[in-house]
Design a binder for these strands. Structure first.
Lengths: 253, 253
DNA sequence: CAGTCAATCTCGCTC
DNA sequence: GAGCGAGGTTGACTG
């Protein structure tokens, strides 16, 4: 089995052969074609004829990309099943999802290029600057970045209303709820914090809520103040050292 | 200029030639290659060597896909600029974003296939079953699906706290705030509605808030009740007629 | 499974 | 450009 195979302007037999082999051998299939697309499931959509890029991954992910935007115009998430058939000179590819029941149908009138590609990829993304890193930093490394005397008690603490990012005590022994955001905090974040403090304030009279983020929108800050809640500016940490691309362990296949 | 061009196992000159021509002619570029990826911007990430599918769209969108998942492992949104250079036998492609300042760098050690493809696509997605359709249906066509005597006043009404989906009056002349969700309503939706009713209740003593959705989670419903708010089951309408999907063989193992 | 929430969310719209 | 909220959100994680 070749690592990849490409056919330009294939006929319908060549196309189905690549499709079959690609699916069987857990390859990524890439098709550039003129097609129509129909979707029905949680919502419903049609997309009339045009050139698009179609990608079918071995995990069942199915993408239909237009020539713009980051997101696919239609898609199916991992776990879906692929079926295809030919109808005269049309190739119809379906992707089926069971729960929720969803179907994506791509009707290809002209295939420009079809290829499969067997990926060899052992490495996973290493990302820093997320909210969970921010949370760990505050909880384990530097609680007093919140304020002098702040002592964390619990992280990701479930209450009936949701999950509190960090629960702690201030230097006076008052309960403090922290809601963290890795980016600029919005009205949503304020509502979220209010939901948690409302819940806990039934049993704790002296309760503080602090929204912890690198910045906050003006209206969110006003709402926060009107609720008697606080804001603390904290930036998500960057644990990854990456001043330059490191080319050790560089492997050629 | 050809509509598309494909080269298998290109050398570095052929690769850069395709890249240059593809970018110049507003084609979609598709590269299957062994590469390393580094990102820095709002967050920071590295991804060590492995086979991936790289897509560069003429609007500046940049995708790096692994062989799994619906979403790219690394990406750049529309509007970014592409730069590339060769370094010994390496091809380094960068995608630059100015605000926020972000950079994505892909270092290709082995290109399996590179192609460009000039898309001819005049059609846009036609989607039904969204929240805005639900809103229009309630506002213009059938307000009494909420309850007998409900009269809508405003749609997408901005207040200091956010934007109310639908504002109306019940048969007794009480102000009613509707918050719509096209899918199952969660705690977030309840908080959102509460935020709006809190705001308006300063001036209106008789104020009702109704969460309108096809369903609601148990805890969201409890929270809703504790706030004295209401739930009304409404499903998003489907305006699109689409008999085109053929769901023969819509079977799952 | 359902629920909850983050995301380099993206995307569209409004001010 | 900032802010706000929807999305066929997806994805990860927990009970």
């Amino acid at each position: 089995m070749d690592k990849f195979k490409v056919i330009e302007t294939p006929n319908i037999e060549e196309t189905t052969e690549i499709l079959r082999n690609g699916l069987k051998n857990k390859a990524v299939l890439i098709i550039t074609a003129c097609c129509r697309v129909a979707y029905e499931g949680r919502a419903k959509s049609t997309l009339e004829s045009g050139d698009r890029v179609i990608i079918i991954k071995p995990d069942g992910s199915f993408l239909v990309h237009k020539g713009e935007k980051r997101n696919p115009v239609n898609w199916q998430p991992p776990g879906c099943k692929v079926r295809f058939r030919t109808e005269n000179e049309l190739l119809v590819i379906k992707s089926l999802r069971s729960k929720p029941k969803e179907i994506l149908e791509v009707e290809i009138s002209k295939t420009h290029v079809i290829m499969y590609f067997i990926l060899n990829d052992d490495n996973e993304l290493n990302l820093t600057g997320s909210e969970v890193e921010m949370s760990n930093y505050i909880f384990y490394e530097n609680p007093e970045i919140i304020e002098k005397g702040f002592q964390p008690i619990a992280q990701e603490k479930p209450i009936s209303n949701g999950i509190i990012d960090i629960l702690g005590e201030d230097k006076n022994g008052n309960l403090v709820v922290l809601e963290l955001k890795r980016g600029r905090a919005t009205l949503d974040a304020v509502s979220q914090l209010k939901r948690y403090t409302d819940n806990l304030s039934k049993e704790n009279k002296e309760l503080r809520g602090i929204l912890v983020a690198p910045s906050i929108t003006k209206s969110a800050f006003k709402l926060l103040e009107s609720y008697g809640l606080e804001f603390r500016e904290v930036h998500p940490p960057r644990k990854l050292k990456m001043d330059k691309i490191d080319d050790r362990n560089f492997s050629f296949n």
